[in-house]
Design a protein around this nucleic acid. Structure first.
Lengths: 249, 249
DNA sequence: GTAATTCCTGCAAAAAAACGCAGAAACCTG
DNA sequence: CAGGTTTCTGCGTTTTTTTGCAGGAATTAC
């Protein structure tokens, strides 16, 4: 990995997560801690980041006070994303939906990972594109402006041609009885096709959305292989899903 | 292998992968490391790549390093965009390439316009999405990270299925003798398909790029219907294009 | 207050770049 | 076509950059 590449990656991470630990960086990029420290120092001298003991902060950090709820659920989503990343292995074909949880997943991908990611969500694709080693496949079709995702028969046909190893679904509602439900008809059609095509379906859901229901049905619990939430796997509210044969992380 | 060949190959590799290692290049082309270094230096002096210790990076890597030229040519590009917008009418199907000139076009679209825009360029699509009445169709395929555009046989096949009314091409180089040329092989394939499919081809080019040549040919002058630059239509440097039967705006 | 990180300094090894040079190829030019 | 010039390429040497490591100082955590 070239020095400039490394620094660009660090800068991206800092801007993304607002903070970065030198210890975690050096395991991610697989260089010595001294190298990281020197990189941080250079970036700090250029005014791009703020160096602190143990890592670095984004410049925007001390300016703005965050919306409280935003940060809170973002933290939960990061926990989910970290768990999800563990399932991805080199060489895999990974199909993902859109949504903020998937965005977080995209941001948490380790830089040395080599895999192919497929999606029709513009924001998610943008995030994948920052990654140094990931191949990005974009599903084309008409764009739904509010969900920023491609929808339509062409997109569904393309998905049905594939057989990805993993499918990560950001879920709007999941319930023990009604399964996964959503509120956008076109997005649901797409998700159905994604589930059908994929070898393994992984649902990402923050605890807040567990046992909630939306008007349109996506799939039943039997179609889900793995459920990831920010809660520990043994939590009582998750027992019902484990009992249905879903691997709960 | 000739020097020009070698440099074209290097440039292609850089544009394809966003980075290149001099060590790997010299085993690929089978020349000494000094030769590679000299090539990289020349390309860097011409501003085509960014040379770093151990190799070189694509210029799109930094993206935010065009403050001077950026603002300057942005004004020219806006002039071009304004002229181009005049060609678009309600109900039209418009196919566009990527590039900063097309970005400017996207920003200049009048808000009451109702049309369908098709592109494989992510930044351009993002701009179209802001428009209230425009239908946006995204061409899907593998994403080329440096040009931020979808490239590949799927994308080309999709384009060939369409028959858009207009095709706006951002051009990297146009010359009276050699026609339109470019430096990214995959993007050229795409542009060729776009030209073939469209009823009317409109080239957008800032004057700076007139009578310049890039390694790979896109099309001849006879394939172009309209040429738009920031210069007034009667400018001497444009006469040769008008003489070739192109409508010059 | 103590233990554990983290940081800094100097240093050394490896890699890459710069430099000068010389042989070879290409290219004028009369 | 012959002689001269320029350009290109590879080699050896020197210089610079980068990176990791060790040991002591500074900072933080408990």
């Amino acid at each position: 990995m070239l020095k400039k590449e490394r620094q660009a990656y660090i800068l991206h991470q800092v801007n993304l997560h607002n903070k970065v630990l030198s210890s975690s960086l050096c395991t991610e990029i697989n260089v010595s801690e001294d190298t990281i420290r020197r990189d941080l120092q250079e970036l700090a001298e250029e005014g791009k980041i703020i160096k602190v003991h143990g890592g670095a902060l984004s410049h925007s950090f001390n300016e703005v006070s965050f919306p409280v709820n935003g940060v809170y659920s973002q933290h939960q989503k990061r926990v989910i994303a970290q768990k999800a990343v563990g399932l991805i292995q080199n060489g895999m074909f990974v199909l993902t939906s859109g949504g903020t949880t998937i965005m977080e997943l995209a941001r948490c991908l380790p830089p040395q990972l080599r895999a192919t990611f497929i999606s029709g969500s513009i924001p998610v694709i943008l995030e994948y594109m920052h990654h140094p080693h990931i191949e990005v496949i974009l599903i084309g079709d008409k764009i739904s402006k509010n969900s920023k995702i491609t929808v339509g028969s062409e997109a569904i046909a393309k998905i049905k041609q594939m057989k990805p190893d993993l499918c990560f679904l950001g879920t709007n509602a999941i319930d023990a009885e009604h399964g996964v439900t959503d509120n956008d008809w076109e997005v649901v059609q797409l998700k159905k096709a994604m589930i059908e095509s994929s070898k393994k379906v992984i649902c990402l859901s923050i605890a807040e959305k567990i046992n909630t229901i939306q008007p349109i049905r996506v799939c039943g619990l039997s179609d889900i292989d793995v459920l990831i939430t920010e809660l520990p796997p043994g939590s009582p509210s998750l027992n019902v899903f484990a009992a249905a044969g879903i691997r709960v992380l």
